[in-house]
Amino acid sequence: MRITVLGSAAGGGFPQWNCNCPNCAGVRAGRIRAKPRTQSSIFVRPDDGVDGVLFNASPDILEQIRASPVLQPARALRDTAIAGVVLIDGQVDHATGLFMLRERGSLLPLWCTDPVAEDLSRGNPVLGVLSHYCGVARHAVPLDGGSFEVPGVPDLEFRALALTGKAAPYSPHREHPVAGDNIGVTITDRRSGGRLFYAPGLGAITPPVFDAMAGADAVMVDGTFWRDDEMPRLGVSSKRAREIGHLPQAGEGGMIEWLARLPASTARRMLIHINNTNPILDEDSAEHAALRHAGIEVCEDGMTIQL
């Protein structure tokens, strides 16, 4: 299978429109060596296939489609390579791009958990709005360990795992998390056997999560923050990383430590959903160098992984 990283930033993108933190101001002024990024999303398709699955529909989806020819195969007057959409959660940066797909000529095939469907029906009624346009054919993502597939992409198998995290701020159960607010997904190519574990929002690594990571050839996981107190230190928020459902990279029990425990068979270890405040965005920073030394990649828009 081929995985195209459409967007690699956290909500707001990089640089964030209203932010003048050292990273955002630095990249605008050319003072730091860093690449702009759109909000996180990936597209997965079989090696020799055209159609594939869009994971998360960010508010930047139209820009991402324009930048990624694989999403527009032009086989007909109106066409798309998106056979279906899988949502990891119901957050604004992962779900509101669905509005931009409203011109689809048929029901939009959408896979999400029941709690996410509730959030997008009540708290942020995306699904209701789309019913006035293309409409949505919604399918429940199983959380019992069972696999599912997306019609039109028969060579790929998907298996979801409930994660520790936070529901969207507009969720009816924001302060009372339930299983399915946030998921990780193992994507398996049935022909090659290649396996990716994808979890852009990850608040804690439990034994089942670590087992899923260790069983994959590649992992693409939460890279939101470097430090737990990153935003309070900069004065942009009082919230710590773990409070809002993100495991930071540095420090005891951080993502770097967990990734170091993976077996050698996990050949690629990648971070995605990177917040604009994270110093790893500066390619000359000590933090970026620490990741390189640890064999950890920082995802960039447009990169392609083959498994």
Score class of each variant (00 low, 15 high):
residue 1 M to V: 11
residue 3 I to H: 03
residue 7 G to V: 07
residue 9 A to M: 07
residue 16 Q to G: 13
residue 16 Q to I: 01
residue 16 Q to M: 15
residue 17 W to Y: 09
residue 26 G to Y: 13
residue 26 G to T: 12
residue 26 G to R: 08
residue 28 R to F: 07
residue 33 R to T: 15
residue 40 S to L: 11
residue 41 S to V: 05
residue 41 S to I: 13
residue 43 F to L: 02
residue 45 R to D: 02
residue 46 P to S: 14
residue 55 F to A: 10
residue 57 A to D: 06
residue 57 A to E: 00
residue 57 A to C: 07
residue 65 I to Q: 04
residue 66 R to V: 00
residue 66 R to P: 00
residue 67 A to T: 10
residue 69 P to M: 03
residue 72 Q to H: 07
residue 73 P to L: 03
residue 74 A to N: 14
residue 75 R to C: 06
residue 76 A to M: 11
residue 80 T to G: 07
residue 86 V to Y: 09
residue 87 L to G: 04
residue 90 G to L: 01
residue 90 G to Q: 03
residue 91 Q to G: 04
residue 91 Q to I: 01
residue 98 L to H: 07
residue 101 L to K: 08
residue 101 L to Q: 05
residue 107 L to W: 05
residue 115 P to Q: 03
residue 117 A to S: 06
residue 119 D to R: 05
residue 124 N to G: 00
residue 131 S to M: 00
residue 132 H to A: 13
residue 138 R to G: 06
residue 139 H to I: 02
residue 143 L to M: 04
residue 145 G to D: 02
residue 146 G to E: 03
residue 147 S to Q: 08
residue 150 V to S: 04
residue 151 P to S: 13
residue 154 P to G: 08
residue 157 E to C: 09
residue 158 F to N: 06
residue 159 R to C: 13
residue 160 A to E: 01
residue 162 A to Q: 01
residue 174 R to P: 02
residue 174 R to K: 13
residue 175 E to G: 02
residue 184 G to S: 05
residue 186 T to E: 13
residue 194 G to E: 10
residue 199 A to G: 09
residue 203 G to I: 01
residue 205 I to H: 04
residue 207 P to A: 06
residue 207 P to Q: 06
residue 207 P to G: 03
residue 208 P to M: 02
residue 211 D to Y: 00
residue 212 A to F: 07
residue 217 D to G: 15
residue 217 D to V: 09
residue 220 M to Y: 12
residue 223 G to D: 10
residue 224 T to E: 11
residue 226 W to S: 07
residue 228 D to R: 01
residue 232 P to V: 08
residue 235 G to A: 06
residue 240 R to D: 00
residue 241 A to N: 01
residue 249 Q to S: 09
residue 253 G to T: 07
residue 254 G to L: 00
residue 260 A to E: 10
residue 261 R to F: 05
residue 262 L to I: 11
residue 262 L to H: 12
residue 266 T to H: 06
residue 269 R to N: 08
residue 270 M to L: 14
residue 270 M to W: 13
residue 272 I to M: 11
residue 275 N to M: 04
residue 280 I to V: 15
residue 282 D to Y: 13
residue 284 D to G: 13
residue 288 H to G: 00
residue 289 A to N: 11
residue 292 R to E: 15
residue 294 A to N: 12
residue 295 G to D: 11
residue 297 E to H: 12
residue 299 C to A: 15
residue 307 L to V: 14
